[in-house]
Nucleic acid binder design. Structure first.
Lengths: 209, 209
DNA sequence: GTCTATAGCTGGATAGAC
DNA sequence: GTCTATCCAGCTATAGAC
């Protein structure tokens, strides 16, 4: 079991990434947020980077876990979009994606953070991949899309919108609205009858070579 | 006209954001990259934040300008996707989007950076908006999508993928591949005959209420 | 406009008492 | 495991010579 102080430091690191960003993270800041001494960061984790790595993993695991049930209920692309909006709203409170975004920014030039950030993103991506697998199974889209790649594209886009939200909430809101409207189109594609589906499939097959 | 040193500092700030990220930016680092004295940052800009704001605006304007011609040639959604991939490849060299991503990360908890970052993103978004306007005009999609919002969603997603690339090139590559394959589907939608278009339009209209 | 010098602070990291 | 104390590097920002 992880010691209490170690856990407190991880929680404090998550909180600091969330409220002050990657530029606001320091051993002193995090330790103060945890209510413990600054030297304990190095005793327990060896370096700030390693603490951040642990924090990133914990934050991602928690948030994915919290949304697993909702994801399991998704039964259409449009509902996946709806789940995405719920997730976005929830994340504005809890900040799991904000932590990931800050980690990704720091990871661009820091190999230690890079491994941690991509692992956290992978956690989200595999979750979404399962949903896409289930939802797209049997539709004409399944054969013409790369579901694992698509899941990763969706995850990355989600992070981008989260960052956008922090800089320009109005613009990000417009972006989300637009995606919602796009959902109607997805619904139509999903609801095509068998004749139309066959025609679409043939059309797709012809064009994809 | 902007003085030579001021311009050098702006270029050096862009370069530093690009190669060392937001956490690697300091008056000393930037001044060293510019080959000038550290005190000149404060003489010319007053603070690091204001230098970064200027750098962000310059970088975005430059890159948008460099791609304006290519954007003007885009005549289909699929070609927009292709242009996006070319832009992505070019940006890996020049790093304009990387600068934007780092600014956005820093902007989350810094109002001064926030204004600059959202202005830069807006520059990209309005450019993409024009392309979408031109390309979607007349298609059934035009009435059922919010083009300004969609342009902002695309911009945000682009930033997300750029960050992804820096942390996990392989995963980001898979994401881009998947979007490419999705392009085939867009091509089909664009290439629908008049009968199918009318049917789709009716279907969309019915479902959108 | 540009430099040196420096004040004053915050940072990571370690040594050593308890 | 946790603390105090400390080293030293790096930081922003300013004062003042040139």
């Amino acid at each position: 079991m992880v010691s209490d102080t170690k856990q407190r430091l991880i929680n404090a690191a998550i909180e600091t990434l969330r409220t002050r960003g990657i530029t606001g993270v320091s051993a002193r800041n995090v330790a103060a947020a945890a209510g413990v001494n600054q030297a304990l960061v190095f005793y327990h984790f060896g370096s700030i980077d390693q603490l951040l790595a642990a924090a990133s993993a914990t934050a991602a695991a928690r948030r994915v876990e919290a949304f697993r049930e909702r994801f399991a209920q998704v039964d259409s692309l449009r509902d996946l979009l709806a789940a995405g909006r719920e997730l976005h709203a929830a994340e504005r409170e809890t900040g799991g994606v904000a932590v990931l975004a800050q980690m990704l920014a720091g990871a661009q030039h820091d190999p230690a953070l890079s491994a941690a950030a991509s692992a956290a993103l992978e956690l989200w991506a595999t979750e979404i991949e399962q949903v896409l697998d289930r939802v797209l199974g049997g539709t004409p889209l399944a054969e013409f899309t790369d579901i694992p790649g698509l899941a990763r594209a969706v995850s990355a886009a989600f992070v981008g919108i989260e960052l956008y939200e922090g800089a320009d909430p109005q613009g990000a809101g417009a972006a989300l609205e637009a995606l919602d409207r796009l959902g109607v189109l997805l619904e139509v594609l999903e609801g095509l009858g068998p004749v139309a589906t066959r025609a679409l499939r043939a059309n797709l097959r012809r064009r994809s070579r």
